[in-house]
Simulated assay, not measured.
Amino acid sequence: MSWSPRNLYNLWRRSVGGLVRDSVWKQTGAQTIFQQRWKSKALVRGYHGDFINEKIFKRWYLPATLPDVRPRAKVSIEDSNTFKWAKKDSAASREIKRADEIDSKGLAPVGSLMFSEVERRIDVVIFRACFAHSVYEARRMVVHGDVLLNGKKHQNANTRLAPGDMVSVDPKAIRFLQADSLNEGLEEEKLAKEEEKSESVSKDETSETGATPEPPTPEPPKLPSLKLALNSWKKPGYTPFNLPPYAAPFIFIPAYLEPSFSTCSVIYLRHPTARPGYSEIPTPWHADGEIVRLAWEWYSRMRPRMRSKSQLARMPENRQ
């Protein structure tokens, strides 16, 4: 979970480049089912929560079960006729249309929902809202006290949010905001120095000759720079919000978040969900692919032991 150019390059190699062969299982039986599941687990954990210890992940951040994905019963002609006799033509058409969509799209990719608890973490939410370059940077913000949870300072990066929680980040802690403002300040300072230098040169000329210098020939007007054109719509006094260009592959906001870039805050609306043909969990792997399925099969067989009272006392904060 990082916008680092090296990390994006590695993701490209895993998804399109030369390392794709490591995640394509041959049908010749070169690898056993156990080996395929273990490798799939390692691949998905390399992106989802690699900063979480494996034992802690299985104990606290792995859901006990996933939602049922069995297809609904098809609406028969007799049922549709019953709707029509009850003067519910619109209800009958909606049910038939919904059943046809489910049949065409297939089952919901619920395998990716095994990372829904990780997506609820406050540091992951800050990263998904595009307030940090990486989840490690977001974790640093939380630990250093630059994050507010519902208006109060919060320094526990392991907290899982509840629907309706608002997370605010101090703009001074967002590095790419400070970099943009610093560059603009340097440009303004450079222009001011050039103006002072030109004024001092003109004063020296007048003192030596005793006559007023001739006005300089007007230069052709210069076109405004791209940066000034992009920032021309912004109000004075506001900090510009410019994301790095290499963040383009991940420059999106999940549907369960509602960020506000003018106030540097984000609201966690609800828990991530999945429906046929669509998953709200951002992942570089196919949400309904073989890698995610094999990883869930691994974790479903390697369940943690029964939680004792001492273990429950060490559970990270879960706001439900």
Rank of each mutant, 00 (worst) to 15 (best):
D50M: 12
A99E: 08
K55Q: 08
D68C: 13
I96S: 03
D50E: 13
A42W: 01
R45G: 03
A99R: 06
H48V: 12
G49R: 02
R72D: 08
T32I: 13
R59T: 15
L19H: 04
V20Y: 00
W12E: 04
A30E: 15
I77E: 10
N10R: 12
R14K: 09
A92S: 14
Y47E: 11
L66F: 01
K41F: 14
R37P: 07
R59V: 10
F57A: 10
Y47Q: 10
D89A: 13
A92Q: 09
P67K: 03
S80G: 12
F34N: 12
R94V: 08
I77V: 11
Q35M: 12
K74I: 15
D100F: 07
P63K: 00
D22E: 14
T82Y: 02
T65I: 02
S76K: 10
R70W: 06
P67T: 12
W38L: 11
S15N: 13
D68N: 14
K88C: 14
L43W: 08
V16H: 02
A42E: 04
E54N: 11
W85Y: 11
Y61K: 02
D22P: 02
H48M: 15
K97M: 11
K87M: 14
A99S: 10
W12S: 01
V24I: 07
R14E: 10
P63W: 03
W60S: 09
G18Q: 11
A86T: 12
